[in-house]
Design a protein around this nucleic acid. Sequence first.
RNA 1: GGGCAUAUAGCUCAGUUGGUUAGAGCGCACGCCUGAUAAGCGUGAGGUCGGUAGUUCAACUCUACCUAUGCCCA
Length: 1044
Amino acid sequence: MKTVGKSVSFPEMEEQILEKWRKGNHFKKSVAQRKNSEEYVFFDGPPFANNLPHYGHLLAGIIKDIIPRYWTMRGYHVDRRFGWDTHGLPVEMEIEKELGIVGQDIKDIGIDKFNEACRASVLKYSKEWERTVLRTGRWVDFENRYLTMQSSFMESVWWVFKNLWDNDLIYEGHRVLPYSVGCHTPLSNFEASSDYRDVQDPAITLTMPLVDRPEVKMLVWTTTPWTLPSNLAVAAHPDIDYVEIEDKSDSTHYIMAKSLISSFFKKKTDYEIIKEMKGHELEGIQYTPLFDFFAELADEGAFRVVIDDYVTAEDGTGLVHLAPAYGEDDYRVCSRDNIPMVDPVNNDGKFTSEVKNWAGMYIKDADPLIIKNLKNRQRLVKHKTLVHSYPYCERSGYPLIYKAMPVWFVNVKKIKDKIIANNKLTNWVPEHIKTGRFGKWLEGARDWNISRNRYWGTPIPLFRCNNEECEHIDVAGSIAELEKLSGEKIDDLHMHMIDHLSWKCPKCGGEVKRISEVLDCWFESGSMPYAQYHYPFENKEKVEKGLPADFIAEGLDQTRGWFYTLMILSTALFDKPAFKNVVVNGLILAEDGKKMSKRLQNYPAPDSILDQHGADALRLYLINSGLVKAEDLKFSEKGVRDVVRLILLPLWNAYRFFLTYAIIDNFDPQTIPEHLPSDNVLDRWILSRVETLNRKVQEEMDKYRLFKVVPALVEFIDDLTNWYIRLNRRRFWKPGLLKDKLQAYSTLHEVLRHFSLIMAPFTPFLAEEIYCNLTDADFIDNSVHLQDFPKPETAKMDKKLEHSFALMQEAILIGRSLREQHNIGVRQPLSRLTLINSDPEELQNFKPLIPVISEELNIKEILFTTNESEFVSLVAKPNLSFMGPRFGKKMKFLINAIRNLPSVILKKVEAGENIEVEGETLTPECFLIEREAKEDSVVQAGQHISVALDTRITPELKLEGLAREALNRIQRTRKEIGLEVEDRIHFRYQTDDKNLAEALKKHDEYIANEILAKSFKKMNNKAEYIINNFDIDGANFTIGIKKA
RNA sequence: GGGCAUAUAGCUCAGUUGGUUAGAGCGCACGCCUGAUAAGCGUGAGGUCGGUAGUUCAACUCUACCUAUGCCCA
């Protein structure tokens, strides 16, 4: 064992340990040594490294470290393989910026050049990530990491896709997306929201005459005239009030929302309400279309009123024009009600020949012409303009339009019930997410759009015949299949490497080429359980055996992300859940409760926290919060510092205390017989406490309740430092190496060693330091992380003793409180303290702890009594939970009656007798009898024990107290003038106070002994002595000290 | 607008199936320096448990509604 310094820098210590792990490869060893053990399967979700890691990543990483470390120590083989998400929009956007091609079509610069630039950049930050992640103490395999852009990974993704295809879970449909007519491509919501501009648009109100009653016209409002040629329906809200109203000026009848009348008619005299109705009464009413371009669709159900909740009566008329191809709600409502779709706008944003009046014209240019046309035909009743903010295409500068695009879906609805069933097999921490956030999301699950009109991703392996009549499709589920189809050798599956391939259609002889889209990168991360091991091309058995995984952990934001896609794919492929246990972490906010923002600089950089306070502190701080049950945390550096101050340093000091003396005494744990059974009651107590802690930690960890662990650790450290060590200090000071001292060393050594094992998953550094130094500091293979988690040892547990000890702690706290109340400092000895408890057995168990109380409270004699009446009176309380169900409404009277019962009667209750109260027979179970101190102020009742303190200070006690005060001043001076603990001195004193003089005389031997005085006399010559003056309670006290 | 979560002492949070005096740490006040620790120890003050209504003998706990905050969805 090596000695350690008084001031410790945890960050420095951690750096040294990191260096040791780097050299000694302890992580690899910890996994390798379990290679024949049972597998504990952990899936690591791939992050995207387009920036430095933030607290959210570190938090998830810490949870992903603690739990695998724990299970490794529990004897399992836990592979921990890091993965990187490498495809997708973020990197594409970054590369566009880097290449200076924002706003240009990527095809113009070449997909090959673009994709290769993406490939080269995706791991740009991975080194910084590795450094920071390792610095937090996380053990994870970066070397053998998986990448979603690896051919093997992509090939497995193809296999997944083809499996779904074969099971009829993939289909082509439409989704209304923001579409850029300048770039000929739909945009993601993210891209679509990056350039909003305030623009003027027409806001027009149109009339829709009813087929059956042409004199009645519905009023419909829109700001996009170009969608009117495609109008196929009108929507009303089921519960809004609508009116049929007569315009007094021309007797025309209109239908509109009642609450919006005033926006059309200034005066009440301008109109008359003919009829009122709810929206649902309008359902199915047919109207005459605005144009005849698609008039024939009336036969297919178009041009009628449909009902939906999304309609509002906030602006317009309360009746909404629907063009199913050009609005998300339009599309949803129309497809639900089987109204056909038309899309007479081409990829350039120009009308097709179907809209013959304006064919070939850019839609926005057509707006005024359409308005004019409608006006001429008296279909327009109001024409205004509206300023609103509208999304634009960042690249081309065109306003975005919402347009139905062909996309590919996974048919989630088809397997929804199975997914829900599989979710039921999963343990969520916190539990409410299972049925709440995630469960509810599953219930409302919609089909999953997996195609993206992008370039840097896994290409969708669908190959379609270019003959529109034919529609033959080939699917490649592997590289080999593509090679077979194309007849070419392939080794990279990216778009620019395979999109030149084509072959002859086996059906019609046309040309078969790949469709243009890539897969949503969530499809890739959801395929990670298979793709990371190149399943099923390799590792077939391993992957199948490892499903579902034992454990995953990610943030709450993954509810709709990874958690969801993992579940969909594992259900689709194997009809199994993807994971058995999931720990969901919450969001880390800045201290001010806002989002952490680089721009606002409202949080300290992770690196600086690690450098200043260390990883152990950060780890404990983070997991001792609601974060590990999906609650938010306002991150506070002070919180991290407090972990150091309140948890790590006290433990460090306990550890240092042990080393200081153990090294002086040359204590060698190896020479202690394995189980030197200590007969010391404090030793047995602390050993029992570690054992209890061990169980508690395992119990909570087995349930993945990390947030329960740190409070238990803190409680234990308090018991260790402020009770065990403080009460035992004298045992370590005694000279020599006698049996009692050996027992003390052996106990403390064992406790620290045991505790370091328990701490290892949580504070891997400090645990490593303590464990290695206590066992074999120099052996390179030595590491706490290569050990087993302590097995429960029932023999070491002594619940009775722990209980007695807790009573003692309570008694001591009461004793201190009584002293404080009576203004008697601890240095003033008192003669007697009485412990009061009616249970003789409890008092009996207390016996071994008497010396502890005596010393702790500076009391000469500790007495026991079961005779409570002398000190306390009994007070009864109703045992509510027992009586409640039995007496119900009578409780009110009984409660009062019971509270007023006199002590004499309560004695009988304690003796087991039944009592009549308010006409009811009450058994003893109905009562909770408590103690209340009698008026006498020297008694205080606690929850489990009462204490009576004899506060009388006899002249004799007074002198003894004075002697202790004097001793205290002398010792203080010794320290002040820099004497070493073992330095001997000559001592002189002087006082005018009779009492003090007497006290010094009477206790001179005791004091001299304590201060290591060779001589102890009254002062007659101050020369040569270091002089100090004190005032003890009004008595002057001058001392002189000279080193002997 | 919908879903989920959160709301308890000045601050950060515990609080088992409804039951007896709602706990802890920090901060604050006061006190304590004799060989591990002042980055320490002790004692104490501090709460109508977000609001309203309800269920119940009994509500911090259950129900409904409302308010505030966060996340997700629309």
